[in-house]
Computed example of a mutant assay.
Amino acid sequence: MHILIAPDSFKESLSALKVAEALKEGFSKSLPDATFDLMPIGDGGEGTLASLIDGLSLEMRTQSVTGALGHSVSVTYASKGSLAVFEMADVCGLEKVQKNERQPLTLTTRGVGELLVKLAQSGMTEIMIGVGGSSTNDGGIGMAAGLGYQFIDEHGQPLEAVGANLAKICQIIPPQENPLAGVKVTIITDVQNPLCGENGATYIFGGQKGLEENQFEMVDTDMQSFYQLANPDILKMACAGAGGGMAAGLVTFAAGEIFSGIDAVLDILDFDVRVQKADLVVVGEGRMDRQSLSGKAPFGVAKRTPEQIPIIAICGSLKDDLPDFPNHHIQAVFPIISTVDSLENTFAQTKSNLIRTAQNIGNLLKL
């Protein structure tokens, strides 16, 4: 049996590569004659960069830019030739902000724009950005400020480029020279949500970033008001809500193009060729829920897998809003948590839980 193992990372627990290695260890115990192809993946959110480094033979580098709290931070990107890849989450990700500091309307995405400029100045002509996992909800205006854009209020005064000021912006002044002239900006994202509305950035993701539910309507209205001024067409575009509206900002201010994160990653990793050799495909993520159905890694892999090849998912936990399986070409889904424990202890046991679950599934496959 040849098993293709293609998990996403388990957030706050293990990288996608570590998950894949643990699953291989478990399956090997019960299926000693099996062969494996480990393909750790990302879908545009956190962990995407790591999945691309091996696939593209990229070199890791660092750069200093402004972080979400306004302080200088060192961020990681990868490059090869004139191509550079980085994740928004590494600049202003939710996991980089303490819970008591999670105020998405006052945090900044300026560092994303600063990094784009520095990469362009260093000779990069193609930049891929994984947009997801952000701590912000500013529609990308902080990023635009990092590119040199200015935002002016009704009194002709410049405004700080944060989400709290979206509704106050009356004029947008572009930089005198385009710092990204000749640079192709590719946006890869793990969500399909539009910028505004009940399925938009604020209503769907604002709560986990620190917004109160009673703020959603006002913040969403402010975002819509700004983009009526900046780029009304973006309000109709799928995926524009990714990264607290960063995808919309990159399209509007950096001439970026949006691509499905999982499809971009699978193309780069030559998935369509590698999957032809598989007798079984194993996918997974830390928490699977109904959101996962719309473009997240496990279902993106399933969509690209030939119908005759079975797929199973191994996940940290499952939300009760999932449909019954088989579904979306995934035959069965297995959560790995074995005991009720604290979140900290549960995360610490992720590797052993993955190994045990894979070993048990392997035993079942031998029947």
Rank of each mutant, 00 (worst) to 15 (best):
D279T: 06
V281D: 08
V273C: 12
M288N: 04
A264G: 01
M288D: 01
V275Y: 06
G295L: 00
D267K: 09
L266C: 11
D272C: 09
V301P: 01
L293P: 04
A264C: 09
Q291G: 14
Q291H: 09
V283R: 08
R304D: 13
V283W: 04
R287H: 06
A297G: 05
I268A: 15
K277E: 15
R274V: 08
P298N: 08
F271L: 14
V273Q: 15
R287Q: 13
F271T: 10
L266R: 09
G295R: 01
D270V: 02
F299W: 08
K303M: 08
K296D: 01
P306V: 04
L269A: 11
D272F: 03
K277P: 01
V283C: 07
Q291V: 09
V265Q: 08
D289I: 03
S294I: 06
V301T: 03
S292R: 10
K296H: 05
A278N: 06
S292N: 06
K277A: 15
G300Y: 12
I268Y: 13
L266A: 10
G284K: 06
A302Y: 09
V273Y: 12
P306R: 07
V301I: 15
F299Q: 03
A264T: 10
V283I: 04
A297R: 02
S294R: 07
Q291D: 09
G284I: 06
T305R: 06
S294V: 06
G286E: 01
A302F: 10
Q291P: 05
G284D: 05
A297Y: 02
A264E: 06
S292D: 03
A302P: 09
V281S: 08
V282R: 07
K303Y: 11
V301Y: 01
V281F: 06
M288C: 15
E285Y: 09
A302T: 12
V283Q: 08
L280Q: 03
D270L: 04
D267V: 00
D270P: 00
G286D: 03
K296R: 12
K303G: 12
V283D: 08
V282T: 10
V282L: 14
V273G: 05
V301C: 05
R287M: 02
